[in-house]
Design a protein around this nucleic acid. Structure first.
Length: 680
DNA sequence: TCACTGCTAAACAGCC
DNA sequence: GGGCTGTTTAGCAGTG
């Protein structure tokens, strides 16, 4: 068989030449070419002059072709050493399989499977070549059959039309003949299908092909038994449904539906050929009546998964369709059953599979996290952190609060969610985890989380739970100052704000007060102003903006990832990226873990992107939180007005500029440069 | 490995 | 003298 396939493939060149020079071919000639050359026939038959004899001849040729393949199949069976019982083929004609569905699932090796084969590296180049040749031959045969099927259907329709126009002539014999042809052709297609399945099965047996369980690209389950995946059938109906409906409407009688499995050849009345409501596969009707189709149009216009907001939602398409009818036309014209659509369908299947897998993994991960934290919260802390000088009891308490399953249950913390992941964009989530372990990073700086909004959201929680706020001392001090009416506070007022707002700071006063003082002195964004009442502290917003988070100083991969994710926002890409996020792509993992408001993934991503865009603006340009990443990416934007009033409120809010020095103001004592030193 | 950043601890000075 | 305020330094740890 391999040799035959090889010769067929090798002779393609001559076939192309013949096809190019042959001009118009009769169906018979084309099919003979198909048989001899394995080349897709260029069937160019005028619909008007199709003769019944030609159909018979064509059917015969196709039958011969399939018989030939059946012989190959038998040879292959011998090689596989009895994979199937030989009686199975005898039973196959009795099995009822919609031809349409059978044809939409070409049993060819997908690129993924081919990649698997390549990855296995168990094939010699010769084997690979033979395999490819076999595959090409199978694909060609499949295409030939599809072409032939289409032509045959057209011919049959035309014939019926002509017969009807010719008057009430006796149609019974002809219809019987047509039905017989239909049945024969259907059986041939079935054999073809099984041949290909066995081919793949043999490949699998030979170890040349690994098929993952549940892999939808290889429906090796016996299609011959009518177990067609519902999705595939639905897809096929979507692709072909309107077409058949239109034809049916135009002809005032339905076209011959070869997908009807109950071809009552014995008494093929007209209606039996047109509508067979009992012919169903997996309980789905396979025949579309015009009325039903029109109704389904109305229904689908609002719920068609491939149509929404006037746009075709086919992966990577997004073509604008004014109404549902135009969408259907577009669907039939642009996304008809061909290799491309089939491949896209398979890719989509892979994407869905991957997403499901990802979801399962994430669920498992979440469960493990919860379990781990819950267990850990009950464990005594081995080495208490210096900051968390609270007693072991407190540690245990706070840790248990940190657990999403057991967040503070004090009566005064109504906003604390128990299951933050599922409760949406509310309040505390993983921030409370910062109490556990030596967390030194504060996410306010890292992810530009608007501290005021976070505090406002989680105010009750912070007030009642001894959870360390996920912000730096500097951020908290600034917030305290900015919250004051006069945007200035004495040190004692700052202390009071800390203790008032955060239960955490009601303990360890010496430690954090020292830290507050240390930060006030250290950062030159805090300006000490002598007042009548004494010294008060204010915030130099510009300086504060300068001391923005760590600069990644141009992480090309991250930047590239971000830009790519924005440039190619096709659903497919998004889904793939989501799948790729499984492999700890920081866009999803770190952000989702670090953002205090975990429930809002969009916010997380925005913040993450904001942070990333800061890095794209080299030299530490303005990192105003809330700025759209696309804005940040825009090269024209050198200056940006901070969009987030939370982070830039008050009279000290300044227009920050690009090209800020990323220097952190540790060197307060080094210089007394003017405030706008960097603004050039 | 290195630089940067944030936190903690501590020492010190000045003032009330 | 004690407490508060403010400054400075050092060390550690996390992160890129």
């Amino acid at each position: 068989m391999m040799q035959e396939s090889g010769t067929e493939t090798k002779s393609n060149g001559s076939a192309i030449q013949n096809g190019a020079s042959g001009g118009n071919h009769l169906l018979e000639c084309s099919l003979r070419e198909v048989r001899s050359n394995g080349e897709t026939p260029s069937v160019e038959i005028g619909a008007a002059d199709l003769a019944h004899l030609q159909q018979q001849q064509a059917l015969q040729v196709a039958r011969q072709l399939l018989l030939q393949q059946q012989q190959q199949q038998q040879q292959q069976q011998q090689q596989v050493s009895g994979l199937k019982s030989p009686k199975r083929n005898e039973k196959q004609p009795a099995l009822q399989v919609p031809v349409s569905v059978a044809m939409m699932t070409p049993q060819v090796i997908t690129p993924q499977q081919m990649q698997q084969i390549l990855q296995q590296q168990v094939l010699t180049p010769q084997q690979l070549q033979v395999l490819l040749q076999q595959q090409q031959a199978l694909m060609l045969q499949q295409q030939q059959l599809q072409e032939f099927y289409k032509k045959q259907q057209e011919q049959l329709q035309l014939q019926l039309l002509q017969q009807q126009h010719a008057g009430k002539q006796p149609k019974e014999p002809q219809q019987q003949q047509v039905a017989t042809q239909q049945l024969a052709f259907q059986q041939q297609l079935l054999q073809m299908q099984q041949l290909q399945q066995q081919h793949l099965l043999s490949l699998q047996r030979q170890g040349l092909l690994t098929i993952q369980p549940g892999q939808p690209t290889l429906p090796l389950q016996p299609l011959a038994q009518g177990m067609i995946p519902t999705e595939l059938q639905q897809l096929w109906k979507e692709v072909t449904g309107s077409h058949t409906a239109e034809e049916a409407a135009s002809n005032n009688h339905s076209s011959l539906d070869l997908s009807t499995t109950c071809v009552s050849s014995s008494a093929p009345s007209k209606t039996s050929l047109i509508i067979n409501p009992h012919a169903s596969t997996n309980g789905q009707l396979s025949v579309h009546t015009p009325k039903r189709e029109s109704l389904s149009h109305e229904e689908h216009s609002h719920s068609h998964p491939l149509y929404g907001h006037g746009v075709c939602k086919w992966p990577g398409c997004e073509a604008v369709c004014e109404d549902f009818q135009s969408f259907l036309k577009h669907l039939n014209s642009e996304h008809a059953l061909d290799d491309r659509s089939t491949a896209q369908c398979r890719v989509q299947m892979q994407v869905v599979q991957q997403l499901e897998l990802q979801l399962a993994k994430d669920k498992e991960r979440l469960q493990a996290m919860m379990t781990h934290l819950h267990v850990k919260s009950t464990e005594p802390k081995a080495a208490p952190q210096p900051l968390n000088l609270v007693s072991s009891v407190t540690l245990s308490k706070t840790a248990s609060e940190a657990s999403p399953q057991s967040l503070p249950h004090t009566p005064t913390t109504p906003t604390a969610p128990i299951t933050p992941v599922t409760q949406g964009p509310s309040v505390i989530t993983t921030t409370s985890m910062h109490n556990v372990g030596p967390i030194r990073r504060r996410y306010s700086d890292k992810y530009n989380v608007p501290i005021s909004s976070d505090i406002a959201q989680n105010q009750e929680f912070y007030k009642n739970a001894e959870v360390r706020p996920p912000f730096t001392y500097a951020s908290l001090i600034r917030q305290a100052i900015l919250e004051s009416p006069e945007k200035q506070l004495t040190l004692n007022e700052i202390y009071n704000w800390f203790t008032r707002m955060f239960a955490y700071f009601r303990r360890n006063a010496a430690t954090w007060k020292n830290a507050v003082r240390h930060n006030l002195s250290l950062h030159k964004c805090f300006v000490r102003v002598e007042n009548v009442k004494g010294a008060v502290w204010t915030v130099d917003e510009l300086e504060f903006q300068k001391r923005r988070p760590q600069k990644i100083s141009g992480n090309p991969s991250l930047i590239k990832n971000i830009q790519t994710s924005h440039t190619y926002c096709t659903p497919l890409n998004a889904a793939l990226q989501a799948s790729m996020a499984e492999n700890s792509i920081p866009l999803y993992t770190t952000a989702s873990m670090g953002n205090p408001t975990l429930g809002n993934l969009a916010t997380v991503m925005r913040e993450e992107l904001n942070g990333a865009m800061e890095h794209t603006n080299s030299n530490g340009s303005d990192s105003s939180p809330g700025r759209s990443p696309m804005q940040a990416m825009h090269p024209v934007h050198v200056k940006e007005e901070p969009l987030d009033p939370d982070e830039n409120e008050g009279p000290l809010s300044l227009v920050t500029t690009a090209n800020h020095s990323p220097d952190f103001d540790h060197d307060r004592d080094y210089e007394d440069e003017p405030v706008n030193e960097d603004i050039e």
